[in-house]
């Protein structure tokens, strides 16, 4: 099973290196990347300063495996990668990185959207939004 969960924010270096690793795969003609960044939502007079992620990892990994398989069946892809943070990710940092590669352009847009939607809806990941006064609330995907 592919490793999805990373501790803390996903760094620009990690993302750059993932791109570089694909330069030896010469059948690829198109990459598409989705990056989710922690936003400073305002709730009343509080502001979100970070999100602390937890997951039911065993179930999440099974679900992510199923989502990957189904994306390969649905779209003509060369490869795909999904990474998600666990632990604390500060506002402005990256918490999800979805990277889809194919021979041609059309498939990668659709596949990226499909993957991000399914991860948000079906993978048991939980987010504690931490406010600037150290209070918190539990994030719900809308």
């Amino acid at each position: 099973m592919k490793k999805v969960f990373l501790e803390g924010a996903i760094s620009s270096e990690f993302i750059a290196e993932s791109i570089a690793k694909h330069q030896s795969k010469h059948s690829i003609g198109a990459h598409n990347i989705f990056l989710g960044q922690v936003r400073a939502d305002e709730v009343g007079d509080q502001k979100v300063v970070a999100i602390e992620y937890t997951a039911y990892e065993e179930m999440a990994n099974e679900k992510l495996h199923e989502i990957r398989e189904s994306a390969f069946e649905k779209f003509d892809l060369t490869c795909l990668h999904i990474y998600h943070s666990l632990g604390k990710v500060e506002v402005g940092e990256i918490c999800i990185f979805v990277f889809v590669s194919s021979k041609r352009r059309k498939q990668v847009y659709e596949a990226t959207e499909y993957l991000v939607n399914r991860v948000k809806e079906e993978v048991p990941i939980f987010g504690k939004e931490i406010f600037d006064n150290a209070d918190h609330q539990w994030k719900v995907n809308s």
Binding site: Y53, E58, V119, K120, P124, I125, W138
Partner: peptide, 28 residues
């Protein structure tokens, strides 16, 4: 056992089963 079930389902939970209570998902 890592599969979502309906709360109303007539299901017997037995020894070595793993149950999880999952609040709304917030990935991404």
């Amino acid at each position: 056992n890592r599969k979502i079930v309906s709360k109303q389902q007539a299901l017997n939970i037995s020894d070595s089963d793993e149950v999880a209570l999952l609040p709304p998902f917030a990935g991404g």
